[in-house]
Design a binder for these strands. Structure first.
Lengths: 354, 354
DNA sequence: CTGAAAGCGCTTACAG
DNA sequence: CTGAAAGCGCTTACAG
C-alpha cells in the first residue's frame, strides 16, 4: 500500500518517535542496566513507532555490530535429507529443531562444503561461514579433532552431538551416558545369576566405546568378578561365538551393531537365545532393523542429545546462571526385553563342544 | 599455534600483501569488469596472503554491504523434523538440499516464528529475518497470499514450492504440471474405451485443483465428450459412488486423497475395481499408504519441485542468461498401474441397483 | 590498474 | 535519562 519499498531501519523509527537512533536500539536490545535507562514515556513512543513502521532488525547489521542474531548453525558432516544418511542424522536433528523452536532460534544448515569425501570444516572456510551464527551444533559419525581444535582456538561457541575430544581444550558436547547405562545392563545380568559375562565392543578408539567398557568394568568389579574382553577385531561372529562357548560364557553385553550378528550366529549353531546365551544390547542401532527382536538393553536418547547440544551452545552465549556445564550426559533408557534370562549361579550353560 | 585469536579480515590480508583493502575485495568478489582490473602480479600476492592468514569473508559484513552470502532461507509453515509433518515436507526438502549442495549455497531454516497456529511470516517479523539470506524458498500446505504479497512488494527473491497466487504481482514458484498430467490420465482412459469419465476433485479453491480440472476438461473436449463433475462437497464416498452408478459412469479420475476411499466404497458394495469401475489417481498422497494398491495415475515430482524452487530463487539473483522463467512446471510421471481396465465403448459397466 | 572514502544498519562505550 | 560518535567488515561508486 505505502509507496515505500525500502525496509524501515532504526533511524526511521527514531525519526518518527522523535528520539535518537541509539535510544531505539536501547529499547530493543539494551542489555541489563542499559535497558532500564529509557523512560517509560520514551519507550512507549518508540514501541509505537516500531509498530507503525513495521520495523524489524537487520540480522546482518546486528551480527556485524557484535550483537546476537538468534541463529545457530548446524553443521552436519554429510547431507541430511537424502534418505541414505537420514537414518543417522534424523533423530538428532528432530531434537535440535524442537529445541530451536522452543527457544526461538533459527537454524543455519551448512551443506555446501562437501567437496566429496573427507569434508572438513576448517579447511573449507567453513569456520568463517559459521560466524553468521551465534554458535553451532556439530553432528557427525566420526571424530574431527582438527575442526574442534580450531573452533576452540577461535573461541567460537559450539557443541558436538556425542562425546568428543580434541587437543587444545574441553570440547563442549551433549552425549549419551553410556557408562551408567552399560553398568545397569551388566547389573541386570548379574541379578539374573550370570557370572561369566563378557563385553563385546567395537574396536575403535571412539569415546563412546570407552564409556561402555568403563560401565561394564565397574559393575563386574563390584560383583567381584573378572572382566572379560575379547579383543580380536578380525573374528567373525561365528568364531566369536565359539570362543564364548569355550570360555563357558553365559551372557554377553554387546555393542549395538554387533548384537544382531552374534544372535544370528548363535541361532545358526542351534543355540537358543536367551536359553543358551543371554545377549544384552548396548544401544539401539541407527539403521532400521530387519529382524524383529525384542532386545534387552538400552536406547540411545538421540532426540534429547540434539536438544541438549543446542542448549549447550545457548549456555555459552548467556553464561548468566550457575549452570556452566558444557559436557552433558543424557541418561539412556533401559529396556527389559527378552534376549536375556535367568541363570543358575554356578551352572555354565554352555559346556564342551556341540 | 599462532597466538592470534582474532579472525583475519580483508584489512589484514591487504597489509600483508602490501595493497589496499579495496584491492583484496576486488580480487575476491569484483563483479565482471571490476574483477579484471587487478593485475596478475597483485592478484597472486593477495591470494597468497589470503592463504597465509586463513582469511574467510564475514558473511554478515558482506550482506550488510550489499553483497551476496550464498545463503538461501527455507521457510516452512510447520516444523520439519518431527515425524508428523515430515511426510509432507521431506521429499521437497530433499530436493532443496540436494540442489543447495550442488550449487554451493547454505540453507537457513526458519523455525522460530511458530507462535501456535496461523503462523505467518509477515506479522512475525519474519520477512526481516529473511534478509540475512539472498533469497528464500517457501513451503507449506496452504496458500498464504498476504505473505507472498509482502515479499513481492519488498522485491525480495523467493519461490514457493507449488503453484501459488497472490495480489500484487506474479508469484515465483516451482509446481507440478498437473494439467497435462491429468490430461494424459484422462486420455489413457479414453483410449481404453471409456466414455463416461467423471472428475472427482477436492472442493478447495487451491490452484493445483484448478489445474487438474483444466487438464480433464481439455481431454474430454477433444474427445467430444461432456465433462462431468460432482461438486457436492458433503457427499460421503458411498453416496458419491451411488451417484456414479446412477449416472452410468465407468471411470473416475480422482484427486489423490479421495481415490482410496472411493475404491473402498466400491469394494464394500461388492463392485470390482477396475472390473466394474476404473479409478485413476491424480498424484500420490503425501502420507504413507496403508493399503497396497497398484494405482493407475501419476506421481508428484516432489524432489524436483524442491530443487527447481531453489533454482528459481537463484535465477532471480543472477538474471544473466535468457532463462527468466519464474514459474516452473515440473512434469509428473505417469504410472500405468492396475486400477484401470478397458471398457467396451457403449456398454455402461454399472447398471441398475445391486 | 589501484586506492581513499562513503555507506550498509546495527551495538556499545563515552559524554552530557 | 538521552544523544553524538566510533566501529563492526565488507561492497561499490568515484577519483586518480
Amino acid at each position: 500500500m505505502s509507496p515505500q519499498t525500502r525496509r524501515a531501519t532504526q533511524a526511521d523509527v527514531a525519526r518518527l518517535a522523535g528520539v535518537s537512533q541509539t535510544t531505539v536500539s536501547m529499547v530493543l536490545t539494551g542489555t541489563g542496566a542499559a535497558q532500564r535507562r529509557v523512560s517509560d514515556a520514551v519507550r512507549e513512543r518508540v514501541l509505537r513507532a516500531i509498530e507503525v513502521t513495521g520495523y524489524a532488525a537487520n540480522p546482518a547489521a546486528q551480527r556485524l555490530a557484535g550483537g546476537r542474531t538468534s541463529i545457530v548453525g548446524v553443521y552436519t558432516y554429510e547431507s541430511v535429507f537424502p534418505t541414505s544418511a537420514s537414518d543417522f542424522y534424523h533423530p538428532f536433528l528432530e531434537g535440535v529443531e524442537n529445541e530451536a523452536e522452543r527457544t526461538g532460534v533459527d537454524l543455519l544448515m551448512f551443506t555446501s562444503m562437501s567437496a566429496g569425501t573427507g569434508r572438513r570444516l576448517v579447511s573449507s572456510g567453513g569456520v568463517g561461514r559459521l560466524r553468521l551464527a551465534d554458535g553451532c551444533v556439530l553432528l557427525g559419525r566420526h571424530s574431527y579433532p582438527e575442526d574442534l581444535a580450531e573452533l576452540l582456538r577461535q573461541d567460537f561457541p559450539f557443541a558436538f552431538v556425542g562425546r568428543r575430544e580434541a587437543p587444545g581444550g574441553a570440547v563442549p558436547w551433549a552425549g549419551a551416558a553410556y557408562a551408567p547405562a552399560t553398568e545397569q545392563v551388566t547389573d541386570h545380568l548379574l541379578a539374573l545369576g550370570h557370572r561369566r559375562i563378557v563385553l563385546i565392543n567395537e574396536f575403535t578408539g571412539h569415546e563412546s566405546i570407552e564409556d561402555r567398557a568403563k560401565g561394564y568394568r565397574v559393575a563386574m568389579a563390584r560383583a567381584g568378578l573378572q572382566p572379560v574382553s575379547l579383543d580380536e577385531p578380525d573374528l567373525t561372529s561365528g568364531e566369536l561365538l565359539d570362543n564364548l562357548r569355550t570360555a563357558g560364557v553365559t551372557a554377553a553385553v554387546v555393542s549395538s551393531d554387533l548384537a544382531a550378528p552374534l544372535r544370528r550366529a548363535a541361532l545358526a549353531r542351534g543355540l537358543s537365545v536367551p536359553g543358551d546365551l543371554s545377549i544384552a544390547r548396548l544401544g539401539d542401532p541407527e539403521t532400521v532393523e530387519t529382524e524383529d527382536v525384542d532386545w534387552t538393553g538400552f536406547l540411545i536418547p538421540r532426540r534429547e542429545m540434539g536438544a541438549e547440544a543446542l542448549r549447550v551452545v545457548l549456555r555459552q552465549l548467556t553464561p548468566l546462571d550457575g549452570d556452566d556445564n558444557l559436557q552433558a550426559r543424557i541418561p539412556c533408557t533401559f529396556v527389559p526385553g527378552s534376549t536375556v534370562s535367568a541363570q543358575a549361579a554356578d551352572a555354565p550353560a554352555i559346556t564342551g563342544k556341540a
